[in-house]
Simulated assay, not measured.
Amino acid sequence: MNYIALKMLMGDRGKYLGIVMGLTFASLIMTQQPAIFVGLMARSYSFITDLGLPDIWVMDRKVQFVDDIKPLQDTELYRVRGISGVEWAMPLYKGLIKARLSNGNFQTCNVIGLDDATLIGGPPEMLEGRLEDLRRSDGVIVDIDGAREKLAKPPATPGGQPVPLKVGDTLELNDRRAIVVGLAKVTRTFQSQPVVYTTYSRATTYAPRERKLLSFVLVKAKPGTDIPTLIQRIQDDTGLAAYSQEGFKKLTVDYFMQNTGIPINFGMSVALGFIVGAAIAGQTFYSFTLENLRQFGVLKAMGASNGTLLGMILLQAGLVGCTGYGLGVGLTSLFGWSMRNTILAFKFPWQLLVFSGVGVTLICVFAALISIRKVIKLEPATVFKG
């Protein structure tokens, strides 16, 4: 009976391909769009991920996400260092500063100021130069994507390719000279702005003059110290906010989820893909069933039970579902691979495979149910009338 079910399904190539294409489209939308959404959310806290050494981030209580800087007084650093359970606490500057390029244009950069002595908080991967080179006069390290794109020098010839920034080139940050001493690989930020690393003392000279310039205090707990307990102790003793790495990531993601239209926009795309896929697959599968009612009726007249016919329809729905799901996921993976070196955000965790699999399963169940109802109510005698 399974062989007969498959022969019936593939006998009409047009309808078979129509069902598969509908499910492929649904699977593609239900994996590609969430993958882009997850990639965007991951970029919103990419700076926290790249800076993986500290256990705790200390900041002003009004900070809502990682780029919402509320500067602290430098004396807060020493208050945090004096708390029991803190192995070390280091300052970190993070701010947006305009860089003047060689052609006179301006480009806003994320400038990161690291502790002068330890350079804790540096880029995760150096491509050229050394982190210690930041101690050289006016030294800065630029991320490779920014050096190739937004900070690149104008083409040497009209219509040519921009010339990437390289070690030894100079920039102007807030009318002060900066010499590129290294190139690093960092995760793109949410706004994909160039990232420039320098020392904390130099970053405060680049920044516009303010009374408070300390963005974050990075804290490492002593071995054996309970992180949640230390966080609560820092909050009680200083009156500042303190988060673990995961807690700070969650704070950032929650802000974007609650205060931007990104989740709604991507959610509507996924819902549209599900609805269109269900409509195409359901209508085509139902039409296929109607055209094969005579065959089902003959089988029923020959003694096939409703359970047997139900199994045949489920087998047909399962086959087209697996085929469409596999093609959709494959196309999504191919899309992500082709976009790996572009500015597009894309992240494909295994949970999305489960999500799209459940979605395709629901579509197949819907398509099967509307067909099963017709077959179950079929009277074998009607097949031989006329």
Rank of each mutant, 00 (worst) to 15 (best):
M1I: 15
N2F: 14
N2A: 15
L9T: 03
D12G: 10
G18Y: 11
M21L: 15
G22D: 05
L23R: 01
T24Y: 00
A35Y: 05
I36C: 08
M41P: 12
A42S: 14
S44W: 05
D55H: 12
W57D: 06
W57V: 07
W57P: 06
V58L: 07
D68Q: 03
P71N: 01
L72T: 00
E76M: 10
E76R: 08
L77A: 00
I83L: 00
I97H: 02
L101Q: 09
L101P: 01
S102Q: 15
S102E: 15
S102G: 14
N103F: 08
F106G: 10
T108A: 14
C109M: 05
G113I: 07
L114T: 05
P123H: 07
L127P: 03
E132P: 10
R148P: 04
Q161V: 15
V163Q: 12
P164Q: 02
K166T: 14
V167N: 09
E172N: 11
A178M: 07
A178K: 06
I179Q: 10
V181S: 01
A184R: 01
K185Y: 13
T187F: 11
T189E: 06
F190H: 11
Q193I: 15
P194C: 07
T198A: 08
A207Y: 11
R211F: 12
K212A: 13
K212Q: 13
S215M: 04
V219Y: 08
P223L: 08
R233F: 05
D236L: 15
A241G: 11
A242M: 04
E246F: 10
F248L: 15
A281L: 02
G282L: 03
Q283R: 12
Y286V: 07
S287L: 15
K300C: 01
A304P: 07
S305G: 06
N306E: 04
Q316M: 08
L319S: 12
L319A: 14
V320I: 12
G328T: 01
V329K: 03
G330L: 00
T332Y: 00
T342F: 08
T342E: 10
K347Q: 09
F355Q: 10
F355H: 07
G357A: 02
V358Q: 03
V365Y: 02
A367E: 02
A367S: 12
A368F: 01
L369W: 09
K374F: 01
I376M: 05
A381F: 06
